[in-house]
């Protein structure tokens, strides 16, 4: 028996790290973009499909696009006998039967496929409806994926499923998942297969409230996690206090700093422009690696 099994090496290098926060604007994109850049060879996945912005920093090249569709029912009214099994089945009330015709409200359909299964006359078949797209490009050695949900669509989950499905861990690569804000279904889908979660928090009472939401979420998912305190100022930090009270690992402290603000506002990647931030994010990356290794060994 070897001292360290092979898979452990692979696990450590092959990490999927999700970056999340209870609200928008805390610094998820800042942290995930800079970690991906600090790791050099890595994959960055923007799962914030309602407002993806990581690509603004990476400015990826050779961008390929793929449309994302969901399946919705298509009715053949000649075959429909008006039994209404589909109408009664649909929990989203996306179907109505009026004057010997079935009407489908496409935007209410959640693509469960139940109506098609239940139709005894085979009057319902599947058709595709486009809800958004994903883009894949490269920026130096970072592969950049961006999910884009079309305006007005109810759920970006099919896009996130596709984004993460495409990105099964490859050898010697870090994957950074830039999550949507909040703690709802769309975030759960984004962190579901993550090996580690980084929670980004602001030093305000509001920040603590939102940190608590994602803290409860990652506990529910039994994910190993730690906190990055962003926008740190001198004086009391309610988010830090929260971490100390709950015994949560603080991974890094990013200062509330003019230099960083200017770099970020100009859509520049801080680790590429500033030695100070190269150090901060290299250090964070190392801390996260150690944390994952620790989790792996203590759970094996």
């Amino acid at each position: 028996m070897k001292f360290m099994p092979d898979f452990m090496d692979r696990l450590v290098i092959n990490m999927r790290i999700a970056v999340l926060s209870g609200k928008g604007g805390t610094g998820k994109t800042l942290v995930s973009v800079n970690l991906a850049a600090a790791a050099q060879t890595s994959t960055y996945i923007d799962c914030d499909v309602e407002e993806p912005n990581g690509y603004l920093f990476f400015k990826p090249e050779d961008v390929q696009e793929e449309e994302i569709t969901v399946k919705i029912p298509k009715v053949d009214n000649k075959l429909c006998n008006g039994c209404r099994k589909c109408v009664d089945f649909c929990k989203f009330n996306a179907l109505a039967y009026v004057k010997d015709k079935l009407i489908a409200f496409e935007e209410l359909c959640h693509s469960c496929g139940g109506c098609i299964i239940f139709c005894p006359e085979k009057a319902l078949t599947e058709k595709e409806r486009i809800i958004g797209k994903i883009q894949k490009g490269t920026s130096d050695q970072v592969t950049v994926y961006t999910g884009i949900l079309n305006t007005g669509e109810a759920s970006g989950i099919p896009i996130i499923k596709k984004l993460l499905d495409k990105n099964k861990p490859e050898a010697d690569k870090f994957t950074f998942i830039d999550c949507p804000p909040g703690s709802a279904c769309i975030v759960m889908e984004s962190i579901k297969d993550a090996d580690y979660c980084i929670l980004v928090a602001e030093p305000t009472l509001f920040g603590v409230h939102n940190l608590n939401m994602v803290y409860e979420l990652v506990k529910l998912f039994t994910k190993p996690f730690g906190v990055v305190l962003n926008k740190c100022l001198d004086g009391e930090n309610p988010a830090e206090k929260f971490c100390l009270e709950k015994g949560i690992k603080i991974l890094s402290r990013i200062p509330f700093d003019n230099e960083l603000g200017i770099l970020n506002a100009n859509a520049e990647i801080a680790v590429k422009e500033s030695g100070k931030y190269r150090d901060i994010f290299a250090c964070l990356l190392e801390t996260v690696q150690k944390e994952v290794l620790h989790e792996t060994t203590s759970n094996t």
Binding site: V87, C90, K91, F92, N93, A94, L95, A96, Y97, V98, F105, L108
Partner: peptide
């Protein structure tokens, strides 16, 4: 029966009227 629906209540209510 549509009153408590999570979504699409209007469609279900209208179906009852129809």
């Amino acid at each position: 029966s549509a009153a408590a629906s999570t979504g699409g209540a209007g469609i279900k209510a209208a179906q009852t009227i129809v």
